[in-house]
């Protein structure tokens, strides 16, 4: 589904990642861990085409990312749901419209999709926050809303960058449960986190592969995780 072959990425002459080879199979669950600044976010951005590798190849859904034009990248992103640590909402739109934004930009009739939206809002327990503006939401509500937006187009892959970074332990467990549910539906999940406790809890419920980024390379983590 997503394959990285000897991928390297440099910015301003500094190598952030080098010689990264990775295969994310359909329905697999991955944690990406490492210290702050190790390159977790960079790797996620390479996975959804926000960054182009300096060298090596990235293949997403059997397409070479480097040769894709902007439109092709946009269409590819509709199959990859992304949850950012800072969520990234349009602050002037109510939550309902923010969550349905992928439908809007993909040309769907949002009114016709209302039932799906309601179901999704129930899933993330935000039914009563539909008309709230993003700045009015708590950290946990924002993360759940970001997750709802990421999956509204039923993508094959969900990438989450520190989804529990700004929430308490209970809320992080709730978010993890939602991501595990998605994985059980057959979605490929990649979570970038430095929260080892979250990884340990997840491994009790799902077969997860833990990838550690260290010294610009990705390694399979040991049995301690």
């Amino acid at each position: 589904m997503i394959e990285l072959d000897k991928v390297a990425y440099s910015y301003g002459g500094d190598a952030l990642l080098s010689d990264v080879s990775l295969r994310l199979a359909p329905g697999s669950f991955h944690f990406l861990t490492g210290p702050s600044g190790a390159g977790k976010t960079t790797l996620l951005k390479l996975l959804y085409g926000a960054l182009v590798p300096t060298s090596g190849n990235i293949s997403v859904f059997d397409q070479d990312v480097q040769t894709m034009n902007r439109d092709a990248v946009a269409h590819m992103r509709r199959k990859i749901g992304v949850v950012h640590q800072d969520c990234q909402f349009l602050d002037h739109l109510p939550l309902g419209e923010n969550i349905s934004l992928p439908l809007t930009v993909s040309g769907y009739d949002v009114t016709a999709e209302k039932a799906n939206l309601d179901e999704l809002m129930t899933w993330v327990s935000l039914t009563d926050r539909m008309d709230a503006l993003p700045p009015q939401l708590s950290g946990g509500e924002r993360q759940r809303a970001a997750l709802a937006r990421a999956v509204i187009l039923s993508p094959d892959v969900v990438l989450a960058d520190e989804p529990t970074g700004n929430v308490d332990w209970d809320m992080s467990q709730r978010l993890l449960t939602l991501l595990i549910e998605l994985n059980k539906m057959g979605k490929t999940i990649v979570i970038a986190t430095h929260d080892l406790g979250l990884i340990r809890v997840a491994k009790k419920h799902v077969q997860a592969r833990v990838l550690r980024i260290a010294e610009r390379c990705v390694q399979l983590a040991g049995a301690d995780l």
């Binding site: 926000a50 902007r70 946009a74 269409h75 992103r77 509709r78 950012h84 930009v105 937006r149």
Partner: peptide
């Protein structure tokens, strides 16, 4: 710029 970044994140084409 932030709006554009969000729109791209959710799959909006440049034409949109």
């Amino acid at each position: 710029a932030q709006v554009i970044s969000v729109l791209r994140l959710v799959g909006a084409t440049d034409a949109y």
